[in-house]
Amino acid sequence: MSDVRTRVKVCCMSSADEVRTAISAGVDALGFVSAMPSGPGPIDEALIAELVASVPPPVSCFLLTCATDAPTIAAQVVRCGVDVVQLVDAVPAAAYAELRALLPHRVRLVQVIHVVDAASIDEALAAAPHVDAVLLDSGNPRLAVKELGGTGRVHDWSLSRAIVERSPVPVFLAGGLRAENVAEAVRAVRPFGVDVCSGVRTDGRLDAGKLRRFIDAV
């Protein structure tokens, strides 16, 4: 095993209490979900900006957006004050360079790839050179109402491992992770980091005990 520490990102932050709980547990990054076609955790941008302003460095703040055009995404990022934008849907190839031009230099780009089948490997490797990291999730953007994350489902980790082995940028793993399976996931995929939402919640709220067990398992 590598001695490089696997990073932990907790998504779907919804309150100051959740932010404090996650930071106290020692997470590396927090995810804030803006408006989505489906899935858990979206909150108003004004609340995202308020919560992000309370987060001390070096904890990173990710804005999850389903927007696909660069001006809309850039405006969201500026309003929310985050340092990472997580693109949960596919964007036009030209959008990456446009985002780089529109956003402050400190803002990093993370492209979500929903691992559905072997074609997802090619999709990830095509996006990777244009972003700072890739995040592998278990949604399905091919549905009439797109699933863009927060499904609580595990996908085929062998496909994720193939992406990790070939990606020129760091890869985060998401999708159905919890304390009971995250160690196996890390061994199987060897991601740079893991991302969790429902796996550390009880009745929709961040559960400090579940989060601690998750981090210990990682």
Rank of each mutant, 00 (worst) to 15 (best):
N140V: 13
V134Y: 07
G139F: 08
S138K: 03
H130M: 06
D132N: 15
G152R: 07
A124V: 10
L136M: 13
L125R: 04
H155W: 04
L159V: 08
D132T: 15
V145P: 00
A126S: 08
D137W: 10
H130G: 10
L135F: 03
D132Y: 06
G149C: 01
S120C: 07
A128M: 04
L148F: 07
L143P: 04
T151W: 06
G149Q: 14
S120T: 10
D137C: 07
G150E: 10
V131D: 00
T151D: 02
D156C: 09
A133D: 08
L148Y: 05
D132F: 03
G139Y: 04
A128T: 12
G149H: 14
L143A: 06
G149F: 09
W157H: 01
L159T: 05
L125K: 02
S120L: 04
L136P: 07
L136D: 10
A133G: 08
S158N: 11
D137V: 11
G152T: 08
V131Y: 04
G149P: 04
E123V: 01
L125F: 07
W157T: 12
H130V: 11
G149L: 04
W157Q: 08
A119N: 10
T151Y: 01
E147D: 13
G152C: 04
P141A: 12
A128S: 03
N140C: 12
A118L: 05
R153C: 05
E147I: 01
D137S: 12
I121N: 00
G150F: 06
A126G: 11
A128F: 09
G152M: 03
T151N: 01
H130C: 13
R142N: 15
G152E: 03
S138G: 14
L148Q: 10
S120F: 11
D137I: 12
A128W: 05
K146P: 06
S120G: 14
L143H: 10
L148P: 01
L136A: 05
G149K: 08
A133P: 09
L125E: 04
N140D: 15
E123H: 02
